[in-house]
């Protein structure tokens, strides 16, 4: 018995050993590569394409950070994580940052000792059902079998929602989106629930997307964003402001098309500060002056990244909605670059 406990301590100590020390920024620079945790595959957010290259909305954040820090958007090692393994991977130092449509909650921020560096997608939990069931509201789901990704906030929201409405359900816990899709399509569950964006992305990959409907209820607030470990503020700043640079670029009208021109200098001092032709913002972060320019050049500003990966012209077809700039009635609002 003593031996087993010891072996466990050994394993855990081995895991914990990697977590030591601050200075992720220096580590990444020394390694020449960013280790970024993403999903195991959710089309539009993070999935390998036909050539095996990762692409998607969350992947774009990883690439922007890599470009800002290392000047090379391909210097990223994508580490697929499940809802269950993601926090351990981040806490143990296996990954430098996690961009895996992860909901910013109090307990994750405070108790799990992570630092959310912003929100790249304002989401909410929804339900998808086959049209033939004739269900029009989530409140009609009494007794339904619900597929759910285990280890996520959706699991807790679901329990709360059904409890609050005093209806019953049968949860079917599932590890990955792919397994959920298999069970849902085979009819082993009536309903699939996760973030509405994830549902839309999953539905887009079905043979017949029109045979499935998203129910109108959005039962939770799910602000999704990249996160890093607590306590390493320099690194947290780098990730936070790389994301903010993409958002501010959209607001300031910087696109992948005109960034070359704008980087030569403009009349707008904020654009100049952002792109490094004025001021020392890069130096303050411990990066090159052109850090934000590199980040924006990868896939364009936030709006362009959104449109390319999950926007209305893609099969996923998400509207900007809450994720429009504050100037357009949305919630995106980057603090000033000053």
């Amino acid at each position: 018995m003593k031996k087993s406990v010891f072996m466990g301590a050994l394993t855990l100590a081995g895991l914990a050993a990697g977590a030591a020390a601050a200075g992720t920024l220096d580590d990444v620079k020394a390694r020449g590569k960013l280790n970024c945790g993403v999903t195991t595959g959710l089309v539009g957010f993070a999935a390998p394409n036909a050539n095996g290259e990762w692409e998607g909305f969350d992947v774009a954040v990883c690439r922007a950070v890599a470009a800002a820090v290392l000047g090379d958007s391909t210097a990223v090692e994508f580490v697929p994580t499940t809802g269950k393994t993601r926090f351990t991977a981040l806490a143990s130092g296996e990954i430098d940052m996690l961009a895996r449509n992860t909901t910013w909650t109090f307990s994750r921020d405070v108790d799990l000792k992570f630092e959310f560096t912003g929100v790249n997608y304002y989401d909410g939990q929804g339900f998808m059902v086959p049209k033939e069931l004739g269900v029009s509201s989530a409140k009609e789901l009494d007794g339904a079998t619900v597929c759910i990704q285990t280890g996520t906030t959706t699991e807790l929201n679901l329990a709360d929602f059904f409890r609050a409405n005093n209806i019953s359900y049968e949860p079917v816990p599932i590890e990955t989106n792919a397994e959920a899709q298999q069970q849902y399509l085979a009819g082993a569950c009536d309903v699939y629930t996760t973030d509405a964006s994830g549902l839309a992305a999953t539905r887009a990959t079905f043979d017949d997307p029109a045979a499935h409907v998203l129910l109108p209820e959005i039962i939770s607030k799910e602000p999704l964003g990249p996160l890093v470990r607590h306590g390493d503020h320099e690194w947290g700043d780098v990730v936070r402001w790389s994301l903010n640079a993409l958002i501010a670029a959209e607001e300031l009208g910087i696109t992948s098309a005109n960034i070359g021109e704008m980087a030569a200098g403009t009349n707008n001092p904020e654009i100049n500060r952002l792109l490094g032709t004025e001021g020392t913002l890069g130096e303050m972060l411990g990066l090159d002056a052109g850090w934000a320019k590199n980040a924006i050049m990868v896939g364009g500003n936030y709006g362009e990244v959104f449109a390319k990966n999950i926007g209305e012209d893609t099969p996923i077809g998400l509207a900007r909605g809450l994720n429009a700039q504050w100037t357009n009635g949305g919630l995106l609002y980057a603090p000033p670059f000053r």
């Binding site: 895991l15 806490a91 307990s107 108790d111 000792k113």
Partner: peptide
């Protein structure tokens, strides 16, 4: 957990560990 059967690895070592972040204690 591969088939979503809620054994003790799925509850204590899965959801509980994930929601509370107490890896060492749970393991």
């Amino acid at each position: 957990i591969a088939v979503g059967y809620m054994d003790i690895t799925g509850t204590l070592g899965g959801i509980t560990m994930n929601q509370t972040g107490r890896e060492l204690e749970c393991v």
